[in-house]
Design a protein around this nucleic acid. Structure first.
Lengths: 187, 187
DNA sequence: TTGACGAAACCGTCCAACTGGTATGTTATG
DNA sequence: CATAACATACCAGTTGGACGGTTTCGTCAA
């Protein structure tokens, strides 16, 4: 009517905000809680505004997933840059990225939860499949040993365990486990 | 009114049917597709009938999850009975149960997908946590080595990979991987 | 053996709240 | 002033679930 629309225009910020709210909702209340109304409500952005950034709910979810893959890629690349040994480097990077969840600032864990939530959506599962295929083809020279595969699988397992709260163990046990995994990548 | 209600009374069968339909929906179309209408529609049971067996949607999901845990327990126990060596027996049973998904008759794979879908629901996540805790306490004597933990994590990873279609590998590579994992449980 | 009876198993309808989405504004900013 | 960045209003379909009905079935007295 009269007094409204006075929000400052910050397209990138608002877009990011919307994604974060969607992520939080998904991780805290499950997939069924991620509705357009809920997202717009919790983020203080109108539904119209939300639908301006993401033309449909599917687009929102896809953007969310894409954003997650970018984060994953960044984390892996960063770890790989600090790793001098080519053999098994990607696997160690992957492991490191999976481990990183636990220790990072709050909010980050949410993103992992979302990943799983999103992976239950059949369409996004294909996107993930594509990601894996790309990487496994790219690093076929340095990371295709049996033990490397085991480590990557275990990394997935740790990722799962961390975000489900299962397989809980104390810090020293965890460190031993990590050491052993890294050792396996070097064989 | 007049011609209806002529269904034979088969409470256990109908109940099972409803759970299976819910499972199929969840795995094929994701969590958002599991609605009371959809379940009752696809199972040929009226919504009233559905709500008779499961007083609420949450109850339905919980029952579904419970049914999954029972299946998992049964699979593990069966594998453990055929295993003469105490050391690492549970871990091998767990591994076996996770591997079994792939090779079993059609429809079984769906159940794994459902498991993951259900795990995104925060309430059910706690139930899973409790399950893991129980088992890890029960088998602390025989399955608490670092390598056993790695194997169980890798089993989770395989479980994830199988149902996401990622980490695809040929049969001989898979067999090598399994052999190596079993070897690790025996150290 | 029967048949009345109560409970359990199912059905069909209705509803308020919510769903994703459209259409049409209004305002900030280059 | 044109366009992107928002907001507001509205809609048709769907949602979970409440409710009252109908039918089957085990049981137990007669």
């Amino acid at each position: 009517m009269s007094t409204a629309h006075h929000r400052k225009k910050q397209p990138l910020f608002v877009r990011q905000q919307l994604l974060e709210v969607a992520a939080r909702l998904a991780s805290e209340k499950g997939m069924t809680a991620v509705t357009l109304d809920a997202v717009s409500g919790a983020s203080g952005v109108s539904k119209g505004g939300l639908l301006h950034h993401f033309p449909s709910k599917n687009m929102l979810l896809e953007a969310l997933f894409e954003s997650l893959l970018e984060r994953l890629d960044a984390a892996i690349e960063e770890a790989m840059r600090a790793d001098p040994l080519p053999h098994g480097r990607f696997t160690r990077g992957y492991l490191h990225a999976c481990l990183a969840l636990r220790d990072q600032p709050e909010g980050t864990k949410d993103w992992a939860q979302v990943t799983m939530v999103l992976l239950t959506e059949p369409q996004l599962r294909q996107r993930w499949h594509a990601w894996v295929r790309e990487r496994s083809e790219e690093y076929v020279g340095t990371d295709s040993s049996v033990d490397a595969a085991i480590v990557r699988l275990a990394a997935d397992g740790i990722w799962l365990a961390d975000l489900l709260g299962s397989h809980d163990m104390d810090e020293s046990a965890r460190q031993k486990l990590i050491d052993r995994l890294i050792e396996l990548t070097q064989l």
